[in-house]
Each structure stands twice: as structure tokens, then as C-alpha cells.
Nucleic acid binder design. Sequence first.
RNA 1: GCUCGAGUGGCGGAAUUGGUAGACGCGCUGGACUUAAAAUCCAGUAGAAAGAAAUUUCUGUAUGGGUUCAAGUCCCAUCUCGAGUACCA
Length: 998
Amino acid sequence: MRYNYNEIEAKWQKYWAEKQTFKAENNSDKPKFYVLDMFPYPSGAGLHVGHPLGYIASDIYARYKRLKGFNVLHPQGYDSFGLPAEQYAIQTGQHPAITTEENIKTYRRQLDKIGFSFDWSREVRTSNSDYYKWTQWIFIQLYNSYYCKDANQARPVSELNEVFNIEGNFRINAACDDDVILFDAPQWKSFSKKEQQIILAKYRLTYLSESEVNWCPALGTVLANDEIVNGVSERGGHPVVRKKMMQWSMRISAYAQRLLDGLQTIDWPQPLKDSQTNWIGRSEGASVVFQINGHAEMIEVFTTRPDTIFGVSFMTLAPEHELVSKITTEEYQQKVQEYIQKTAGRSERERMADVKTISGEFTGAYAIHPFTEKLIPIWIGDYVLASYGTGAVMSVPCGDQRDYDFAKHFNLPIPNIFVNVDISEEAFSDKENTIIANSDFINGLNYKKATQKIIEALEIKNQGKRKINFRLRDAVFSRQRYWGEPFPVFYKDEIPQMIDEKHLPIILPEVENYLPTEDGRPPLGNATHWAWCTKTNSVVSNELINNTTIFPLELNTMPGWAGSSWYFNRYMDAHNSTEFASKEALNYWKEVDLYIGGAEHATGHLLYARFWQKFLFDLGYVPVDEFAKKLINQGMILGMSAFVYRIFGTSPMTGTAPENVKPIRGIFTTDIFVSKNIADKIEEGKLDFETEKEILRLVNLQANLANNKLIEGESTYGDYLSFDFTPLHVDVSLVNASDELIIEAFKNSREEYKNAEFILENDKYIVSREVEKMSKSKYNVVNPDEICEQHGADSLRLFEMFLGPLEQAKPWNTAGITGVDGFLKKLWKLYIPNETLEISDETPSADEFKTLHKTIKKVEEDIENFSFNTSVSTFMIAVNELTALKCNKRAILEPLLIVISPYAPHISEELWSLLGHNESISKAVFPIFDAKYLVESSKMYPISFNGKMKFTLELPLDLSKDEIQNRVMNHPKTIKNIEGKTPKNIIIVPGKIVNIVV
RNA sequence: GCUCGAGUGGCGGAAUUGGUAGACGCGCUGGACUUAAAAUCCAGUAGAAAGAAAUUUCUGUAUGGGUUCAAGUCCCAUCUCGAGUACCA
């Protein structure tokens, strides 16, 4: 019986689906374990071999945990709202709902082929209304909450309202907008309802505000900070500009400190924690208030170096700072205005591109130094960012390089306030080795003491205080897009109101035109009928009937990260229609025990999800405030791009010829490709005469075919030598494992290559290779379906693990897959050498037990340490050893199969059932290794040791065990090392090493 | 610039976390089977030297130093590469 993987895999995939083998129950006597993958965006391209890497790893872990006796939750779903899905729909001219549905089908088909043990009964899709109902519901909870800094948690806004009625807001310590005014109870009561609502909005955890946003005209929407990379949009790389728009925001900044503290409690990769830490950007310092000469307004700055306050020689405001227009004097008005215009027109990218150019303008105004009372000129400059701190800095040129450069450029004074420091060339920013000078009452102090004293002095003057500043900004939550969750919001008197929870979900309406608009009008504005009012049971027009009155609805939609910020909780109770998940389910599963996904979500999804989880925890809806205990970032699988070299000018498709090259474009009707090493030789100018003649011949042949008179006179030998060639990506499926182009397939791949000519080396056309990101446009995508077809899903699973450490980026190279193929075949042959199963019930030998228990121990360790790659090696060794021992004993093979089954479930199931078992192998118990056999298998006598006394002695090889012991104990080195203690254990490695455990 | 991480055969990568470096796989070389090829199986494969051979001896984990009986592993310095981040006051 041949090992027919296609048949076997289809059979067991069907079996698992029909029997619902991997369905998890929400209660069980077994301990629970929750293994989660980051759910995919169903994009149009389908899966490539890189995508399932993390899924395979988590599947192995999930299957292993089941064998270990855990009740395992291992769900999967789709993040089906958001930009990628919509962009694909726009490109293909179809409705996003349709393309999403199709893409999901493709994904599901591809995933099913790999044999995952997902519990599909819990599938979620963020674009399903019974899911986004609860996304909308969470939004309402956020709207109805504020962050109380005293209690350090979110609390209902209604509570705030009560306090305002009794004593105003003097004693409220909450996260809120900076511009909240102080009021007492009578004042609060005197405000109109609308005024009260506007004030409350400044406290809510989600709020509407006119804010500077990152506007991407090409995508027709605003983007969050984490959706912008290097000043352009992450999706598509379009330019992004600053723009003021009325937007919903999430007050994530309220949770900055807790998001930071929480990192200590979770087992996530350090680089990922680091990048969240940097993104949150906590810095300790002081807020200092400067009076402005002749104005009532003050300038508040944030500084981490209050100790350098006597070194201030000017102030700098961001051009967007609100005080600029108020304080600029008549004389400087025009120049300042021009400068503001100029900087506002620059895109984020331009601003980043020339950080070196120093620019700014003097406002004509002066601030007053809090201690010396000297006048300090106030400048504006775009090196000061409006979005960080207060958008204003006290400039200390001797202690900060940017201030220094600015001062040098505009010829401003650079007073030195440090002892024994030369600042003639650059600023001195080292705060550890500083002694302050020229600074009145802090002379001679170091950074720490000086800072302390300055803050105390500022507090007495009421001109400053200790402050912790965060870089983390509130997250913009509105998107001017169609394919997202509608807000459960309508407007009354221009004040947003939440739609009553009983009306949820607010269904995304059908629209004629869902394309984004350049000016930012949301596509939902095109809807004629959408919100459904259950009370009146009527469909209404672009408005919502709330009892009797008609009000306009919010037309923006939520961003892609809304749905992904809580989905892990939904899996626990995926079909609940009365709660996002029941209390019982939440209390049972609690949190994700193992979360696997890419590191690219570090400052996006993974931060937002932590934020929402903490919020839901504060309100008592979830039992834990971190949603994932352990997280692993799987590395990217890279593609091996292949290139062919086309001689420049021989294609009718080629563009303009470079200078000094006689253009022969258009003369030939086909392409000439040269093999890699010949191309290299041409590049080095070392082409041999024969090859050169051959190229010439082909070119001339073509010229003749085209009936062209290039040969004589017009083209000389020299022309061809100067010809260039362009490396072109060629589809990797047209190249075999030894980098050889399959010429016939290549010719048939495109009409224009049909008559192509090839200059070969050793009768082969060799392509060049380069490792790049796997992508359709680079023609280096390897489809997992093909691998399953040609090698089987078990091979794919084993090979993806075998490629290298899970967390590392690594190139895909199909060539090596024959290794794991061989393993599976050998495993099969161990049971079925010929036509039928041949199994013996004899008691295994010690050697056979050794192999088995070594494998059990190693694989268990590997899985626990997530080093799945080395397990595959262990399996290969085991099978090789057992083959050599001709071992076909049941007592060895059964436990071995159980150990292999998480990695290669299909072949394991098949053999398991051939051995006469009626139940799936996933119901078996992971075997326990027997130390007895392990000890004997070790090269050392005992397998492990944990003492400290280890040293080497040179001993003859031919001594008996007793003799060795004797010599070791009487050796001067031993006596010196153990100092009279009695050794518990002596470990002797044949040859030289002695380990003595004392 | 800053912050992490990594440098081991022709290649992907192992190494019980301080204890026989190079497991396992690919590739390559030789052999068996075959008319031949593919497939399969067997053997060899870090480098150098010696030997008819089994085998032996050196040298080797980016570079230079250090700690230790013992270093790929720990410490210091240097170089190279990768990832993230960037006017953060």
C-alpha cells in the first residue's frame, strides 16, 4: 500500500469536520487552554506559504495541549472590515460585501487543506452585523464613561454629572481635554443642556472634536498614527497631509500609564514590549509656565531638564500654537504669517525629509524668565511639534542640540551653565555628568538635585510643577469610508447622541456608490434608506426616528482596528445575542493563553486591544485586564525571487535606450535572454568570443527576420558590447529547484515570449535569485495549495516548521521539502513495508525504548519552548533509528505516533486507525517519557546535573568505571575544587570531562 | 542618531544554556539497482596534515582581549548585518 497523502488527508479532514472533533466546550473538568491566531484580513490574493506559518505553530501547540489533557479553545475568524477589503473591492469594481464573501471562501478552502484543528463553530467575522452589534455596543459604553485618575479606572459619566451638580469640577481628577474650565455647582446648573453636554464630552472616553488629523487624499480618509509609515500611508504608500476635521477620538491617553505598567505582567517578546513602551513614550520632567511681557496669557512648556532653566535664551513655539497670532507684534506679523502658511502647506513627508534645514521667525514678543525676570525672545519654528507636550519649548541651546542649532542659525546667545564643559562646537546633553553653574541658587548641584530644587521653587511661585508627559496621542476613530462599522450615533442640536442599545445593530446600509471621496464626505451620505427603527418598524431616510423627532445620523464609519480590539472575547461565546459573551464563558476562558501573530501590529491592534480590554475590565465586563498572557511573533517567510536577463533593446517592449547606446528598439520582434553567468560576464566585460558571436548571430537573425538592415555598417561589434540588460522578475513556478529556467513553460507563459531566444550556459538557462518579501508583484509567491497537492499537508506543516526558528524571518525554498517527504515515507514504511500493515506485539528492546523515550522527552521540551524546528529533526532521527533496528513493535509505534500527531496529524490519524483504534488520535494521551531509558541513552552517564563544581581532567580512556572514580577523587584538582565536601554525583564524559556535583 | 537583536560548513540551521561544536535536512561526491534517466537505498562531506588502512594530530563558532579546570555560550572593545524608531524638548 503506497502512502497516498492526498487521499488520506482529504479523508481525515472530512472526518474531523463531520465529527466536530475540535469543538471546544465552555465547561469541562479539564484545565482550560486558549490558543489564538491573529485572524486574517481576507484579501483578494489568497494565502501564500508565509501566512500559515503562525497558524501551523499554534495548531501544533493546540493539538499538543489537547493530548496533555487540556480543554483547548482554538478558534479562527476573519477581520473582514477595513481598508484592504475595500481597496480590493474598488480595484475589482465589485461590492465589498461580495468580494469579502468570496475571499473568505478562498481562505477557508486553503486553510482547510492544511488540516488545522480550529473550532469553526465559533467563527467570527467583524463585518457580520451580529458581531459588529457588539462593537457598536462597546462604543456606547466608552461614550458613557470617563477616566477617574483617583480610582485609576473608567467610571460612568452619569457619576460625573452627579458630582458637578453637588460641587462642580474642582475636585474631579480625571483624564480630560486641556481646555476644561473650572466651575462650581451653581455655575454648572446655570449652563444650558447643550453647554453641559459640551463640557461632559471633554471627559468622555470617546469624544467628538475638531482635531488635526492625518488626511490621506488618495485613500479618501483619515488615518491613525500607526497607519502611517515614513510619512505615507501604510496601505498603498500615498501621501498624507495635516488637516483639521471633526472626528471621533478614543481617549487612549487616559490609559497610558496602565498600558505601560501592564507590560510588566505579560509574557510578550521584549522587542514588542519595547516598541509599545517607545510608542507610549513616557518622560518625566516639569511643566513650566512663562509669563508673556505685556500679555495676560502664559506659555506653558514641558521640559525634562528643569535644571537648565537658567540656560534659557529664547522660547520656541510650534507654528500652529494658538498663542502665535495673539502675541506677534505688528512689525513681525507678515513674516510670521508667511512662515505659518509655508509650514502648513508641507506634507508630513516633506517635513521629515529635511530635518536639517533650520527655519523659524521671531514673533516680536518676549517671555519673562521666572527667576531672573529677564526678557526672553519668543520665536516660532517647525522643529517644535504641535502634537508633543504643549507645542512650546523653553530653548536651552547649551543643553539641547536642536536649540543649539537654532541659536547658531539665528545668532541667538548660547549661555553656558555647565561646569568644565566646552560648548563651542555642540550642545552638552549628558545629564548624568553635569554640574550646574551660572544658575543662581542651584550652582554646583548635579542634575537630580538641581531639578528637585527648581521644581520646588517653581511650585512656590505657582509657575510650574512636576509632570509626566506621554507621547501617546488619542486615537482618531472616524473613517470616511464605506466598509466599516456604522456609529450608533445621531445628532440632536449638533450634539452627538447614542442610539438606544435596543436598536443595535445599526446595519451598514446598501449604497449605490461606496467609493471614497476626495473631499472627505463619507460614502454613507449616499444612502437613502438605512437605519431601522424597531419601534415604529419602519425604514427611514438618511435619518433616524427617535420616538417622534427626526435627527441626522453619524455618517463616518469605524476604523479597521475597532472589530479586532475585542474579538478574542467573542470567541468564548460566539453566538450570544444578548451579551458580547456570557459571564460564565468569560470567567471560564478568561484570557488567551497563547497568542501568535506578526510583530507589525505592535503599535496598532495590540495596543488598542489592550486598551479596550482594560476598559471592559474597569466596567466589570471581563475578568482580566490583559487579554493575552503570552504572545509570540512569528517571523516572515520571504520569497526567493528569480530573475532573467533580457538584453536591452531586443524587446519591442523596452523603453528608451540609455545615452551612448545606439537604440535598436523596435527592430526585433522577440526577446533575447542571457543566462545568469553570461550576464555577469557581460557586466564584468569578460565575455568570451564564442558567446559574443552567438549573441550577434541571434541579433542579426532577428534583424533579418524583421527584414531590417542592421547587420552591416549600422551596428558594430562595439554597439552590442555596450548593450545593457534588464533583470526581470520571472515567476518562480517556471524555475526548477536548481535555478534552471523551464524554457518551454516560460515561452508559453506570455504571448510576447513565444519566440524568445536564449543564450545558455552548459545547455541550461540559469536564473539569478534574490530574497525579497513574498508578493504577487515580485512573482515569488508560493501557493500552499500547490505544496499540499504535490507533497501533502503534513509535508507542508513539517517543512514550514523545519525551515528555522519560528520567530525568525527566513526565505522559502521548496528544494528542501524532499527531506520531510522522506521522513513521512519512512514512517509509513515502518508500519507498511509492503502491501499490508505489519505490526508486532513483542516487547521492545532497550535500544528501541531508548529511541522512543528520547523522542518523547525532546519533543515535549521543544513544544514547550516553541522550538518546533528541532522536533522535526528529532522525528527524523527516531524513524531512522527504528528503521535501522527494523522495529515494528506496537509498544513503540503507538506512542511515537501520538508524539508526531500534532505536527503531521493526517498520517498519524490514518496509521492510528489502521492499528485498530476507533477514536481520533487527538483523543489520545501524550506519553510520558521513562527516565530509565533516557539515562542509558545519554552519552554521559547520568543525563543531567545541576551542581556547580565542574572541571576537566585528562584521564586515559581504557580505565574501568571504578578506577576512574578513584583517580578522580584523588586528583589534586578535585581535592582543591570540592574542599572536603562529599560529592553527590560524579559525571564522567569518556575522554576528558568530569563533572562533580557537590 | 537612538533602542533592541544577530554573526557557527556551500546553504537552512543544531548544541542539554558554561561541558566531546557542526545534530537534522538540503546540496555536493562516490557506490548499488537500471540499457538509460528519474525514483529509491548505502557511504562520505568544517579545514589542514600524517597513514595502505582502521585511525591519529593540529586549527577552527566575525575580530582583538579577559574570566574559568573548561567559552559558540559569560565580560570588555572593535567590525559587519538585520529589525524597530526618529526633530519627543
